[in-house]
Amino acid sequence: MLAFVTVGSTRFDALVHAATTTDVLKALKSKGFTRLIIQCGNSDVAKDNVEEQGIQIEAWRFKPTLQDTFNDASLVISHAGSGTILDVLRIDKWLIVVPNPTLLDNHQEELAESLSKLGHLKATTVSGLADTIAAFDPATIVPFPKYDGTKFRAIIDEELGF
């Protein structure tokens, strides 16, 4: 089973660092994970191409699309960017988001909190990551609504007299 940590196009040193700590690796192992891929963006990763706590760790900075890795992963751990959240929830993957506290005037926290209240994902902090993984119960996750373009189409049709 693969866990995928992603920070998108941003820099999020604390999350990238936390991903390879013993606590997080142990928590992943306890959930049956054997592989961890870290897309570290503009942050530097401490461990790459090693096996620790029974988890094979691999890291890279960017790829043109993350969609393939999202598809392969069972669990995605991400910064709370809205694009990543939509991409992951739309393919029904388990998602843990960690809003970046160093960003000023960002609305990641609001979005993460609201989606977490609706049960679509778990929101946590860097220090709470290991515990959140260990406590992750897929049975409590509410499936995210599928894309429905009919509402927007109806508005545009109305505006243009279709």
Binding site: S9, G81, G83, D148, G149, L160, F162
Partner: peptide, 19 residues
């Protein structure tokens, strides 16, 4: 750009392109 572009393309993807 970025998330705005993704959202805009997602919005228009269900429109009536025969029109």
């Amino acid at each position: 750009s970025g998330g705005h572009t993704s959202e805009a393309l997602s919005l228009i993807s269900a429109l009536d392109f025969t029109r």
